[in-house]
């Protein structure tokens, strides 16, 4: 569904991505692991078009490298950024409404669905989203992107800085998304979640993919874990 070949990206003069190859199949959960600063977030940003990409990115058989973000999003590629860019001046409900790509479109997800997954979002639907806790903002960001009914969603570090209890709920939300047939490309640092829910795993280092395999492969490969993951 998503095929990335020889992807390069730059921030000013620094060469961040140095030839990334990765694939995500239909309905598949794939995790992209690695230490901070190796280019995981940049990979997602280059795919969605927020950072200018070089190389080939094909989505549903169509080349999308260099297209504008909103065009890519409309093809069914969702993106949840790591900084939880909620719209703080809008209410929670308005945030969800903006996730829908048009006023008429009704996909797999409705605002009711979002409320059912998180009852405490419903109670606070009409308060300003800026006052939500970090965990609630994270859930809102994910739900908002799902309102647009993507076929593949890229989620960047959804559990960063969250309490263990909330981490578990975010994990369940991701599984719920997968259960509805949406493919997921997950960027994570917490190995436990990634190993638990992913079908395949990529490990990144220095702007390249340094390992590809199943969670079992990674569990058995202590050398890769030592060299590229453990701090």
């Amino acid at each position: 569904m998503l095929e990335v070949r020889d992807l390069h990206a730059y921030y000013g003069k620094s060469h961040i991505l140095q030839g990334v190859d990765l694939d995500v199949g239909e309905g598949e959960i794939v995790s992209l692991l690695g230490r901070n600063g190796v280019g995981r977030s940049t990979t997602l940003k280059a795919i969605i078009g927020e950072v200018p990409p070089e190389g080939s990115i094909s989505f549903k058989g169509e080349e999308i490298a260099g297209r504008k973000s909103h065009v890519i999003a409309r093809k069914g590629l969702g993106y949840v950024p790591e900084n939880r860019d909620i719209f703080p001046t809008l209410t929670l409900r308005q945030n969800l409404i903006l996730g829908q790509k048009s006023a008429r479109a009704q996909g797999r997800w409705s605002i009711e669905d979002a409320f059912e997954l998180f009852p405490n979002l419903r109670e606070r639907a009409d308060i300003s989203a800026g006052v939500l806790s970090g965990g609630e903002q994270q859930m809102l960001t994910i739900c908002r992107t799902m309102m647009g009914d993507p076929d593949l969603v890229m989620i960047d570090e959804p559990t960063e800085g969250l309490a263990p209890q909330i981490v578990e709920r975010v994990g369940r939300l991701i599984e719920e998304i997968a259960a509805r047939g949406v493919a997921i490309l997950l960027v994570e640092q917490k190995l436990t979640i990634a190993l638990h829910i992913s079908a395949r795993i990529y490990v990144m280092g220095h702007g390249r993919i340094t390992f590809e395999g199943t969670p079992e492969d990674l569990r058995g490969n202590e050398q890769i874990r030592k060299e590229w993951l453990e701090v």
Binding site: K68, H70, A73, P81, D85, F87, L90, Q94
Partner: peptide, 25 residues
């Protein structure tokens, strides 16, 4: 209105609005 919400969200987070599929330019 919906377009009003898009404008207000673009005031603070234009990139995010674009990656939700709205034509910010």
């Amino acid at each position: 209105t919906r377009i009003g919400l898009i404008i207000r969200a673009s005031l603070t987070h234009p990139h995010m609005v674009a990656s939700l599929g709205h034509d910010v330019p």
